[in-house]
Design a binder for these strands. Structure first.
Lengths: 139, 139
DNA sequence: GAGTAAATCGTAGTCATTCCGAATTGGAAA
DNA sequence: TTTCCAATTCGGAATGACTACGATTTACTC
């Protein structure tokens, strides 16, 4: 997903186009990795010094609800990244040093569904953590 | 893992046997599902009304570090359960209503390792969320 | 039974997140 | 363009999970 498609989505759902929303989405498009609300505030501190935390949190949550962003919970924080739309369902490798992510195609949910026929399955989480090649050679 | 083995483990690692630790481990053995620190405090409120939160958090963390407990992060909270030792490596289905867990044998990490040969993989998380058969029929 | 390090208590502090009332603003309608 | 109003933002206070810490108590050793 890119900035323009995200803004279109906002408009079509009746959301207003505000400088805050533009800045947040432009940042996430540029970074292409998981950022916390705090990361977003820091990154926008120069450009938008008086954007309140309420604004950051509220918008990140809204964007996540409407699938503009992907969200995870990591190290006690909610983190957000631009929604990947190259493939359909996917998971991520996440570099714990730089935050870089790598899409994974494998997902074992079919096997799980077969193994738990009498359970209702609503959601699942599969994430792999480690060090990306760049950080490995740099370290 | 059961209470007695857990207490042995504590002793062998130089930890003292205290009423708090006994109560926490007995509770987790009995419940056999993920509990938050708050859940533990509430459950022990009658029996140990003055157990401080410091004690609960510190012990849960210690137990998790020494693999007496398994830990996950769910809904913005750290949650703990007695370590399953029936199988080796495994993951869990977690019922979002009652907290019941079901062990899963499937794990796609071999495929992931092959797909990311130049990445260092330190950890991973795979969890399935939904409704267990009991809660489904009850609802 | 005495001594000591570990454990606990009570409380205050931190940090991410949410809430709320007042002020501002985007965008539709006049 | 101007008006208008609900949506949005601001600023700051409140919440809730978790951590830190000095003072007190306690489990275990000798």
């Amino acid at each position: 997903m890119n900035f323009d498609i995200a803004m279109e989505r906002l408009k079509s759902e009746g959301f207003k186009r505000t400088p805050s929303r533009e800045a947040i989405l432009r940042l996430l498009e540029r970074e292409d990795r998981y950022l916390s609300a705090g990361d977003v505030r820091k990154a926008l501190a120069d450009e938008h010094p008086k954007m309140s935390q309420d604004t950051v949190y509220r918008n990140l949550s809204s964007f996540s609800e409407m699938k503009i962003l992907e969200e995870t919970e990591l190290g006690g924080e909610r983190k957000f990244r631009m929604h990947c739309d190259r493939h359909g369902h996917h998971h991520h490798f996440i570099c714990m040093e730089c935050g870089r992510t790598e899409e994974l195609d494998v997902c074992p949910m079919e096997q799980v569904s077969r193994a738990l026929p009498s359970f209702v399955i609503d959601d699942h989480k599969f994430e792999v953590y480690g060090q990306c090649p760049d950080c490995r050679t740099a370290g």
